[in-house]
């Protein structure tokens, strides 16, 4: 059943992906500024604009370019960068792991902060603890990540002369250095994420704790721990997981600013530079990979429901 449902979902995802590919392809071409003129000025690839345009394949009608790109993309070829002439897929391959690692780490940090605090806030509803946690959560939602990142870099440097590492440390070369480098940006990204998730966990758990079966559990004399974690949290967690699924694009998008500040060579930085350089194949490639990734994750999230909640059968 689950397999059939997933197959159905996959089919439904195709039109969304096609529309996304159209947006991905059209949007960068609407950006004012002719990439060919920019390139001719900086790098003398060809005699004149027309020759360069033909060389890059940008002289053909736009729909021809779209279908050719789409056809190749389906086969796993995202073309090559207009500027560096390197295959886009290869470049993404080098950068995607960094962005994904950052996003996943921040997710983990977010969950580690949000779920326990959300549970405590719900279990101790309307106490000082609850109010403190809720206010802290809204504060976490309100503080801009890029400002927090700037402060984390500046203040320790002024007070103690300590500076975080700049320049990317590869995991293969220095494991400890790599993790300490990634942890700070991950925590900063995780905070905003945790705030929203904590509020949702609290809200959902409160809803569940009002159910009859929870009252039954209380009257059976079960311990609070068991009631809240086993009877409560397990039933409250599904909307939280949905939320994580829907927020994933935002976590990945949020890395743009953080990668810039911490000088991490991830996808977002790559995309940001490509937008400025009008490097169409790179912009298209990165966006397409991100969107496909997100669609895939949402599929996994849907499948997770059935695992977590035996009542859900597809």
């Amino acid at each position: 059943m689950l397999r059939r449902y997933l197959a159905k979902r996959l089919v439904v995802a195709i039109p969304s992906l096609l529309i996304a590919s159209l947006i991905v392809f059209t949007l960068p071409r609407l950006i004012p500024g002719d990439v060919v003129a920019m390139m001719l000025e900086e790098k003398a690839y060809a005699k004149d604009l027309e020759e360069l345009r033909a060389k890059l394949g940008l002289d053909r009608p736009i729909y021809v370019q779209y279908f050719e790109w789409l056809g190749r993309a389906v086969a796993g070829d995202l073309g090559e960068s207009l500027w560096t002439r390197r295959p886009v897929l290869e470049e993404i391959g080098q950068r995607l792991p960094i962005t994904l690692e950052l996003a996943l780490l921040s997710l983990v940090v977010g969950i580690l902060i949000a779920v326990p605090i959300g549970v405590i806030a719900a279990a101790r509803q309307d106490t000082v603890q609850d109010y403190t946690f809720r206010s802290a959560a809204i504060l976490g939602l309100s503080v801009p990540g890029f400002w927090l990142a700037t402060l984390v870099i500046v203040l320790p440097a002024i007070w103690w002369g300590w500076r975080p590492l700049t320049g990317y440390v590869e995991i293969g070369k220095d494991v400890v250095g790599h993790i300490t480098q990634m942890l700070l940006p991950a925590v900063i990204l995780g905070i905003a994420f945790a705030a929203a998730m904590m509020r949702l966990t609290r809200g959902m758990l409160l809803e569940v704790l009002r159910q009859d079966y929870v009252r039954t559990a209380w009257s059976k004399g079960l311990r609070e721990r068991v009631i809240i974690l086993k009877h409560g949290l397990r039933n409250a967690i599904i909307p939280v997981i949905t939320y994580i699924g829907t927020q994933l694009p935002q976590v990945i998008g949020g890395t743009v600013v953080i990668e810039t500040i911490f000088g991490l060579p991830g996808m977002s930085r790559f995309l940001f530079d490509a937008i400025n350089q009008r490097d169409y194949p790179v912009i298209q490639g990165v966006n397409l990979v991100v969107v496909s990734f997100i669609v895939a994750i949402n599929l996994v999230v849907d499948a997770l429901y059935a695992v977590l909640d035996p009542r859900i059968r597809y």
């Binding site: 694009p249 935002q250 998008g253 600013v257 940001f272 937008i275 997100i294 669609v295 949402n298």
Partner: peptide, 17 residues
Amino acid sequence: AWMSFPYLVIILSVMAV
């Protein structure tokens, strides 16, 4: 389709346009 993009990416692209 819109919602599967990171917001910042859409906003940046639209602003670039």
